[in-house]
Simulated assay, not measured.
Amino acid sequence: HASSGASTDALRAAEKSELLFRECGDWKGEVDALLAMSESKVSVCEDNDRTCGNLNILKFAKAAVKLAKERRAGDWVCLGNAHYTYAKVLLQTNSARGAGLAAKDAVRAFRKAGMEQRKGYALLAWAQADLKGGYFGDARGHLEKADAIFSNFDDNDGRGKVYQVNDDIDRAMGIPTQAELEAQRQQEMMMMQQQAMQWQMMQQGGGQMPQNVQMIQQQQYMQDEEQKRGGGGASAFSREASVIDLSGGLDATVVQGKIRALAAQIIGDDEDMETDTPLMEAGLTSNTAVLLRDELSRDVPGINLPPTLIFDYPSIGAIAEFILEASAKKALKGKKQ
């Protein structure tokens, strides 16, 4: 029933099998039946586009995990499936922290079982939990690993889900999704083609290329150059963390210099950036803005940088001021304690 998409019929069959296995004392079958019940109930919720709070499925998924730990401790496949199903149920009931812990356990179990593709789906669930918790950088890290796994298995369905969660992160951060950016780019390309046709008609009369065509071609050139550098993504950027010691009360110029150097590395621009220039105007993109925040977090441990750092504090000077103020507050709090 489940493989044919008949979620309701699958749920009824799983409920009957769970009762039979329990009456027979077949704990192995009971674990499988509890998992099937939980998965079927989640599918019913997804089919009807609603949450599962009213279907009381949490106890079944929790019971499956408990029974798997007690009776099938060495069966990593069963444990992985139990934790993964529990994570999906917790995501449906909006328990982000619990879902993240369950997904993490599922990743570990599937790794021990050698089930790489299933590990990819557990990483996907982990990313969804981090998204709900507001940990956007961590969520993207899990998605990157999941996407690499799905690529190895030619799993287009898995890659499509990674794409969807990445879009959800963009929406949560208030920035355009990849689909929206692509639609905008296609619209600009159509406009360019139309204007190019007009320009060709003007050539015979000695006219010049319209300004908006020049601008669009320049934008296209910049996008192509970014792709050549690796798209500005995390996969094209790696470095060792260089921790800033804020305990000695550093002045703003030192922190600004660190931010400026890191931004230049990510953007790929050797020119000195002004302190008050918005970094998005200097060449930072929505994706590399997240990367800059994540990399900067490694250099200022103990300072909580918000996921929307670059959008709330757009310039080098504003970011440095925020870090120094946060550091001063932390030091003051430490003295009071």
Rank of each mutant, 00 (worst) to 15 (best):
S3M: 03
S3W: 06
D9E: 14
D9W: 03
A10T: 02
A13Y: 04
E15M: 01
E15P: 12
S17I: 06
L19N: 11
E23R: 11
G25M: 02
K28W: 00
G29M: 09
E30A: 14
V31P: 09
D32A: 10
A33M: 01
A36Y: 04
V42K: 03
V42N: 01
S43H: 03
E46A: 04
D47S: 03
C52F: 08
G53L: 01
L58Y: 07
A61V: 00
V65G: 07
K66L: 05
A73E: 14
D75I: 00
W76N: 02
V77E: 10
G80A: 03
A82S: 07
A82Y: 01
V89Y: 04
L90A: 00
N94Q: 14
S95Y: 07
A96H: 11
A96E: 10
G98T: 03
A103H: 04
A106I: 13
Q117A: 13
G120C: 13
G120H: 09
A139Y: 15
R140E: 15
L143D: 12
D147H: 15
A148P: 13
N152F: 14
D154T: 13
V162Y: 10
D167K: 12
D167A: 12
Q178M: 09
E180G: 14
E180V: 10
L181N: 15
E182C: 07
A183T: 14
Q187M: 14
Q198Y: 10
Q198H: 14
Q200T: 08
Q203F: 08
G206K: 11
G206M: 10
G206F: 08
G207R: 03
Q208A: 02
Q211H: 09
N212P: 12
Q214E: 12
I216P: 11
Q217D: 02
E225L: 01
K228R: 10
R229K: 09
G231T: 06
F237K: 11
A241C: 12
L246G: 06
S247C: 05
G249E: 05
L250K: 06
A252K: 00
V254C: 01
V255F: 00
K258M: 05
K258P: 08
I259Q: 01
A261C: 09
A261Q: 00
A264Q: 11
Q265N: 00
D269H: 13
T275Q: 09
T275K: 03
P278K: 07
G283R: 08
S286I: 09
N287A: 11
L291G: 05
R293F: 00
E295N: 08
L296T: 11
V300C: 03
G302L: 04
I303V: 04
P306W: 00
T308W: 04
D312L: 10
Y313P: 14
Y313R: 00
P314V: 05
G317M: 09
G317A: 02
L324F: 11
L324G: 07
K329F: 06
K330A: 14
K335V: 02
K336C: 01
